[in-house]
């Protein structure tokens, strides 16, 4: 009895100091987490400001529009053109296939062997490193089809690389559409396909667009898959060609290539300018993805965001 009575206050005292200690640790840990999160924003801000600081002086109308040269003073005009050219070509292949596969997986396929095989294939395709995909493109389009380095080969390689991401975007966008919409449409006598085309896709169009534009940004900056498929050169005589069967060095590859292999004297100027243009394009794609996504959602569903 006596010992219990004497130990009770001391236990309370120790647990009080324990609480104080635990609260101190909690506050410290919370502070550290805040600092870590803030450092990510600082890191990004540093990158952006540094790239602007480096590249700002390189930017000029002449730099953006003229062709690269062996001597100093070359521009990046054809590279910017090729980046957009390959981007558009890639999207022409990627969007229909991945929309189709995504719609099939989300709306039609019943759980079973076929669906899990497709899902697993998409996941596997998503983890193939981009350089390995580039070598596969080299085997198929350059060696097997004997196309040489072509914009088309590069675009098809990028299609394989980005297909799984867009299938996933499609599936997630469709999954976000409430089932009540589908039930209402089927209840009015529409077939499944009519339901998908007139009810489900319009409701999902905002999310789909956001996903597609973000992936477009990734395609714009892709390099490793293009080195051995689209090549490292631009045509000297016809830099702005529409023909897909020609080698097409993109801006991202140009940034790597000027630094690592070529011998032009003003590597830093061209590199800094190219890096800044790439960064600005990525910012533009990100902002465009948000704006277009929310505008389309509002237009087609009347809901905001």
């Amino acid at each position: 009895m006596a010992s219990a009575a004497s130990s009770a206050p001391s236990r309370r005292l120790s647990s009080n100091s324990g609480v104080r200690l635990r609260r101190l640790i909690d506050a410290l840990a919370t502070g550290v987490l805040w600092i870590m999160a803030a450092s990510i924003i600082c890191l990004l801000a540093t990158f952006i400001m540094y790239l602007f600081y480096l590249g700002f002086h390189s930017l000029s109308w002449q730099f953006l529009t003229s062709a690269p040269t062996q001597s100093a003073g070359g521009g990046i005009g054809p590279e910017i053109y090729n980046s957009f050219y390959i981007l558009v070509l890639t999207l022409i292949f990627t969007v229909p296939i991945s929309l189709g596969a995504g719609i099939y997986l989300q709306e039609y396929a019943r759980p079973g062997l076929f669906r899990s095989v497709v899902q697993f294939s998409a996941e596997s395709l998503a983890t193939v490193p981009s350089i390995v995909m580039g070598l596969f493109g080299l085997l198929i389009f350059v060696f097997y089809f004997h196309w040489g380095f072509t914009a088309l080969g590069g675009a098809l390689t990028l299609t394989l690389l980005n297909l799984p991401a867009l299938v996933r975007v499609t599936q997630e966008a469709l999954a976000s559409v409430p089932d009540s919409l589908r039930e209402a449409s089927i209840g009015l006598g529409a077939t499944k396909w009519q339901t998908i085309m007139r009810t489900v896709l319009p409701s999902a169009i905002g999310r789909l667009t956001t996903g597609i534009v973000l992936i477009a940004g990734r395609i714009f900056g892709e390099t490793a898959a293009l080195i051995f498929t689209a090549g490292l050169s631009v045509s000297a005589n016809h830099p702005y060609e529409l023909n897909p069967f020609r080698s097409a060095e993109t801006l991202a590859i140009h940034l790597w290539y000027t630094h690592s292999e070529s011998v032009i004297p003003d590597v830093d100027r061209v590199g800094n300018g190219s890096a800044l243009v790439l960064l600005i394009m990525v910012l533009a794609f990100n902002i465009a993805a948000r704006l277009a996504g929310s505008a389309l959602t509002k237009r087609f569903t009347g809901r905001s965001s």
Binding site: I40, L43, L44, F47, L51, L214, G217, R218, F220, G221, E222, T223, A224, A252, I253, L255, W256, A275, L278, L279, V282, L283, F285, N286
Partner: peptide, 10 residues
């Protein structure tokens, strides 16, 4: 999201 979007060459 921006950190994801920055190309690897950059």
């Amino acid at each position: 999201e921006l950190l994801v979007g920055i190309p690897s060459v950059v």
